[in-house]
Nucleic acid binder design. Structure first.
Length: 951
RNA sequence: GGGCGGUUAGCUCAGUUGGUAGAGCAAUGCCCUUACAAGGCAUGGGUCACAAGUUCGAGUCUUGUACCGCCCACCA
């Protein structure tokens, strides 16, 4: 074996073997256990969040597989409508071509081409991460089967009255020219202005304070072209008399009414609000209440009336909306129009003032531009009826969130859910299965033929399919069952649905989790016709952030590719990777500087297992992860530790009798029984942690057991046993057997978190450990056996350790090199101590590097020594030539100060009558013993200090 | 404006039902000891954000405050 662990030498080979042999597939035996991968964007590449997500899922699935469950980890990718279309459009734009130049069909061919070309990146990455997904069942949201499921779901929901087409205000993205759902709008605080505009009163009316105009305050002055009213609060004394009167809309010179509506907040601004029903969600509602005009200019059949939409698809001012509109603004971009409209107000003396104002600006999450409320026909899912059972499923515990607090987030959103706009004016996606006749009558069905039959349409009636596609999340929402073959009643659907756990970040609870629950419960029924849930548990993990706690994003230039941590990357390549393809190329120099500072030597190659173990150990619930490269390095070292422990074990066991034949002629020493006991405890901790989704605790328990107990203590303790010429063959065999079998168990215990190194080593040692089977992947997961916990051995070794630590402390403080063997005297020991000493001398000699151990009778006089205490027993290291008097006094003084402090504290507690009265007897007893023991120890230390001083 | 989470060693984080605070990294000192210098041994370092309360006893439970972060919401 190499002297250090070389992950690259083994990872690819093992993954290939596993995959070829079909180990990832369900084997048809045991209880079904299923996890659905959150499908990544087929044309994207995996980031750290995916790496984390995959590490968690693979740990869970490998754990359950080894426990004997019939596991299915369903893999696949998402077509990611907007994101993918944007990428391809950007590529075309670089060649000066727009999608409209190509036309729909040619454009879609381009996207498919890109999908084919790019799709391998993701799947290659998933393989490199070691994820044990069933590749034979890989799906894509736009493949034939899933498209059929989408169609089926749409038609059924429509026929059930849960999908409808409606004309209403939607969030319009003027850059992407499509509607988006509420969730795709991000509201950010931005600095803006509040413009105070004067609207002259008509018919000579005046305000209470004698002005002949009203002042409206607005953050969006350019929308005034579409104003159809001014609203005041019904009980606002300042304006009460004006309700029902009119103002003249400046620049447009149209009369608009003053209406009363308690939507208006009297305290804010001037208490007068301009109402633009076609361009603001609130105003839309006000407009409906007051029958204010509101007409969509895109609707060719509609009359052009005041209040119509004043913007075009791209947010420029609509020239044709209304012949009364001043023509000088036509065609201007909305922000240019704003400037000119303000200037025009100023020209006519109607601009009262401009205040600075902080406001929430709604931006499209993909395009980043300010979205425009816009009136169009769109398809909607009626969510209220779907939400009800979906809420109940979480309330009654059929679906459980881990950690629990996310249920509140889910409830609060679901209880106030708005209808979901599912149509998108894109080309890449599932085309909506709806057809129109020349009169705009809509027919929904699985295909044109079905539509004609279903609605009794003449064969020659011209029908036109809806141009729009569905929101990507509509198909994602079917993921748990569409991938299993729905709408067919397949065996897989029968067996694996509902799935067991969904592992995901909190950022997509609304986008994905909530919608999956709603859609699944409506569309999928069990044998009794009851609604099926998509999954029993939702394990919600945090976001992976950079070392500064910043969200990772391409534009910040702080993204890390998990593969670069696995394979390593040099600085120049990393800089190049981070600075190419930026949305804002001007950020490049800043990103370069920052990257060079954070990774002056690039990133070392740490291997998959180190990365995965790090993800797991950072996976505590309910908080984000600040990714720390130091942890990866530490865990790479941990892999190396296991590797080298194996080298040692093999040196001891190879070509030796380790009981691999199952023979019983071996003896277990106290340390053998000790490590076996500790192993049971570790197994229990790890299993409990995995069962409760505490991968961090599982990782910690494994780390501590392997490094601190197995390596630091047991391997060292095994040396005096195996190297003892007087030890019997049975004893040596017992130790070799324990060495190799505990190691083999460690590998199985760690496999879900570190699949590669454990398989590699397991294959090397399995014959010696008497293990069988072709792969560790399918071997049995260790299970704690309480009957193998040997209390006596635990106590004996704790005693040993205390002595060794005492001597080492003297050694360390006195700077005695380990190479120098020292004599030790033992005084004041009990009969038990003496017996233990006799039985365990060899261990003490080796681990404390002792030259001799001498048992002193209580009467014997000892030479001047440095002292360590183990209970009543004194461990003495004679000072002659080794130890400096002052240093020893200092050491003893430090120790006694510590004891004094402890005694004072404990005595204070015991002096409190209330404590003695009310605390449980055993707690009081413990404190009493503590004082007694510490006092004896302190007394000894003081005597020792006195003796030193007398020298 | 509501709701949630966080605040523990220089850094990143654990801390189970209240019983004297732990790990990794970093630091310091000594060691190339025959598994491992990606290592060994030892050491230092924390009024658990602040305040009050409950309790014999609070990092842990209650209330409030501060700061940080997130989610939701119609204040033009």
């Amino acid at each position: 074996m190499d002297k250090t662990y070389q992950p690259h030498a083994i990872e690819n080979q093992w993954y290939q073997t596993w995959e070829e042999k079909g180990y990832f597939k369900p084997n048809g035996e045991g209880d079904p256990y299923c996890i659905m991968i959150p499908p990544p964007n087929v044309t994207g590449s995996l980031h750290m969040g995916h790496g984390f997500n995959n590490a968690v899922m693979d740990a869970l699935i490998r754990y359950r597989r080894m426990k004997g469950d019939d596991t299915l980890w369903q893999v696949g990718t998402d077509h990611a409508g907007i994101a993918t279309q944007m990428v391809v459009e950007r590529q075309l734009a670089a060649q000066g071509v727009s999608r409209h130049d190509l036309g729909r069909e040619a454009f879609l061919n381009k996207v498919w081409e890109w999908k084919e070309q790019s799709g391998g990146t993701i799947t290659r990455q998933i393989r490199r991460l070691g994820s044990s997904v069933d590749w034979s069942r890989e799906r894509f949201t736009m493949d034939e089967g899933l498209s059929r499921a989408v169609q089926e779901a749409f038609v059924r929901l429509h026929d059930d009255g849960l999908i409808y087409r409606g004309k209403r205000l939607v969030n319009w993205d003027p850059k992407l020219h499509t509607a988006i759902s509420d969730l795709e709008v991000e509201n950010h605080d931005e600095k803006g202005h509040l413009w105070h505009l004067r609207y002259p009163l008509a018919d000579g009316a005046t305000t209470a304070d004698g002005k002949n105009y009203l002042v409206v305050a607005t953050t969006r002055p350019e929308t005034m072209l579409g104003d159809s009213a001014v609203a005041v609060h019904p009980e606002d004394e300042r304006y009460r008399s004006l309700i029902g009167k009119f103002v003249v809309l400046p620049l447009v010179n149209r009369l608009i009414p003053i209406v009363a509506d308690d939507y208006v907040d009297r305290e804010f601004g001037t208490g007068c609000v301009k109402i633009t029903p076609a361009h603001d969600f609130n105003d839309y509602e006000v407009g409906k209440r007051h029958n204010l005009p509101l007409i969509n200019v895109l609707d060719k059949n509609a009359a052009i009336l005041p209040g119509a939409q004043i913007f075009n698809v791209d947010g420029s001012v609509n020239a044709q909306v209304d012949s009364s509109l001043p023509t000088q603004f036509a065609g201007l971009d909305r922000y240019e129009a704003r400037k000119q409209i303000i200037a025009a107000f100023e020209d006519v003396g109607l601009l009262e003032k401009i205040d600075d104002h902080a406001l929430k600006v709604p931006r499209g999450d993909r395009s980043g531009v300010v979205v425009e409320p816009w009136l169009t026909d769109q398809w909607y899912v009626s969510t209220k009826p779907l939400a009800e059972p979906a809420i109940a499923a979480v309330e009654d515990g059929r679906i459980e969130f881990v950690p629990k607090q996310y249920e509140n987030m889910y409830f609060s959103w679901m209880r106030d859910i708005q209808d979901w706009c599912i149509s998108r004016q894109l080309w890449w996606g599932h085309r909506i299965p709806a057809w129109y006749d020349a009169n705009g009558q809509v027919y929904v069905g699985r295909n044109e033929a079905e539509v004609r039959a279903k609605y009794n349409l003449a064969a020659d009636l011209p029908l036109q399919q809806d141009e729009d596609v569905l929101d990507t999340w509509f198909s994602s929402g079917l993921w748990t069952f569409s991938t299993l073959g729905w709408p067919e009643q397949t065996d897989f659907l029968e067996k694996f649905h509902p799935t067991d756990v969904l592992v995901t970040g909190f950022d997509i609870i609304f986008f994905w989790v909530a919608r999956m629950i709603m859609l699944t419960m409506h569309l999928v029924k069990d044998d009794q016709g009851q609604a099926q849930i998509p999954f029993k548990t939702v394990y919600v993990h945090g976001l992976v952030r950079d070392s500064q706690g910043q969200k990772m994003s391409k534009s910040k230039g702080n993204v890390l590719d998990p593969l670069d941590i696995i394979d390593g990357i040099d600085l120049e390549t990393l800089v190049q990777k981070r600075t190419t393809g930026l949305m804002r190329p001007q950020d490049a120099s800043k990103i370069e500087k920052q990257t060079r500072k954070e990774f002056p030597d690039g990133i070392a190659a740490y291997g998959t297992d180190a990365l995965r173990f790090t993800f797991c150990s950072l996976a505590s619930t309910g908080r984000d992860i600040k990714f720390d490269m130091g942890r990866v390095e530490g865990n790479r070292n941990f892999c190396n530790k296991i590797w080298n422990a194996t080298r040692y074990v093999l040196m001891q066991c190879e070509d030796q009798d380790c009981g691999q034949d199952g023979s019983q002629d071996y003896e277990l020493s106290v340390v053998d029984r000790w490590i076996i006991s500790k192993l049971q405890l570790a197994e229990k901790t790890v299993c409990t942690a995995l069962d409760t989704y505490r991968l961090d605790l599982a990782a910690q328990a494994i780390y501590e057991f392997v490094w601190d107990e197995y390596c630091s203590w047991y391997l060292e303790l095994s040396k005096p046993l195996l190297w003892d010429e007087n030890a019997s063959a049975a004893q040596k065999k017992g130790t070799r057997r324990t060495l190799i079998r505990v190691l083999e168990t460690i590998l199985r215990l760690s496999h879900p978190l570190m699949p590669f190194i454990t398989e590699e080593i397991w294959q090397k040692i399995k014959p010696l450990a008497g293990a069988t089977g072709d792969t560790i992947m399918l071997s049995r997961y260790p299970q704690a056996d309480e009957s193998r916990v040997d209390k006596q051995a635990l106590n004996d070794v704790a005693w040993l350790q205390a002595i060794i630590l005492g001597v080492r402390n003297i050694r360390g403080e006195m700077k005695i090199a380990d190479a120098q063997k020292i004599p030790v005297l033992i005084k004041n020991g009990s009969a038990d101590d003496q017996q233990r000493l006799n039985a365990n001398q060899q261990f003490l000699r080796k681990l404390a590097a002792l030259e001799s151990i001498t048992w002193l009778s209580p009467e014997a006089t000892a030479p001047m020594s440095a002292t360590a205490l183990v209970g009543q027993m004194e461990i003495l290291v004679p000072m002659a030539g080794l130890i400096d008097k002052e240093a020893e006094i200092a050491r003893l003084t430090k120790e006694s100060a510590r004891l004094e402090q402890d005694i004072a504290k404990t005595e204070g507690k015991l002096a409190n009558a209330a404590f003695v009265d009310k605390a449980p007897a055993e707690v009081v007893e413990k404190e009493r013993n503590r004082v007694v023991e510490n006092k004896i120890a302190l007394e000894k230390l003081r005597e020792q200090i006195e003796k030193m001083n007398a020298l």
